[in-house]
Amino acid sequence: MRDPVRDVAGRARPSHLAPRLTLRALAAEGRGAFDSGLGDLLLPHTALHRPGASPSSLLPLLPLGLAALAYRTLGWAPALQTDYLPHALVTGFETRGPRVGGFGRDRRPDAVAALAAALEAHRERFRVADRAETRTPRSTSTSSPWPATPAAGAGTSGSESPYLPQRLLEAAEPF
Rank of each mutant, 00 (worst) to 15 (best):
R107Q: 15
R135E: 08
S159E: 08
A154Y: 07
T142Q: 11
T142Y: 01
A132C: 09
L168A: 10
F103R: 06
P165Y: 05
G153Q: 08
V100Q: 11
A129G: 00
R107Y: 05
A121W: 06
A121G: 10
A129E: 07
A111V: 01
D106F: 14
E170G: 00
D110H: 12
H122I: 05
A114S: 14
A121E: 14
L164M: 08
T136M: 10
W146I: 02
A154I: 07
E124N: 14
R167K: 00
F103N: 05
R123I: 01
R138I: 07
D130Q: 10
G153A: 12
F126I: 04
E160F: 10
T136E: 14
A148Y: 03
S139W: 13
L119C: 10
F103V: 00
S159M: 02
A111N: 01
T156C: 10
R99H: 07
L164G: 00
P150E: 10
W146K: 02
L164E: 06
T134A: 12
Q166A: 12
R127F: 07
G101P: 01
V112C: 05
T156I: 01
E133A: 11
T140D: 14
E124Q: 14
R99N: 02
P165N: 03
R123Y: 08
S144A: 14
Y163M: 00
S144Q: 06
S143T: 13
G101F: 06
R125V: 06
A111G: 12
A121Q: 11
W146P: 02
P147N: 04
D110E: 15
G155F: 01
V100A: 10
P150G: 03
R108V: 10
E133Y: 03
P162R: 04
A117E: 15
R123C: 07
T140F: 14
G155E: 04
A121K: 11
F126L: 08
A113T: 11
A116Q: 13
V128W: 13
Y163C: 00
L168T: 03
G102R: 12
A148H: 02
A121C: 04
S157C: 10
S157W: 03
A113M: 06
P145F: 08
S141N: 09
R125T: 12
A111K: 02
P150W: 01
S143A: 14
D110I: 08
T136K: 11
R135T: 05
R105M: 11
A114H: 12
S139D: 12
P165R: 11
E133W: 07
V112T: 15
G102H: 05
P165F: 02
P162W: 09
F126G: 00
A148M: 01
T156S: 15
A151D: 04
G158K: 04
D110R: 09
T142E: 09
E160P: 00
G155M: 02
G155L: 06
L169V: 00
Q166M: 02
A117H: 09
P137H: 15
A152I: 05
V112R: 13
A121I: 03
A148R: 10
R125S: 03
F103A: 10
T149Q: 06
P145M: 09
R125C: 05
R127M: 10
S141F: 08
G158L: 03
E160V: 08
G101N: 05
A132T: 09
L169I: 00
R108L: 13
P150Y: 01
V100H: 03
S157P: 02
L115F: 03
A152Y: 08
A151T: 07
Q166S: 09
R105L: 15
E160T: 08
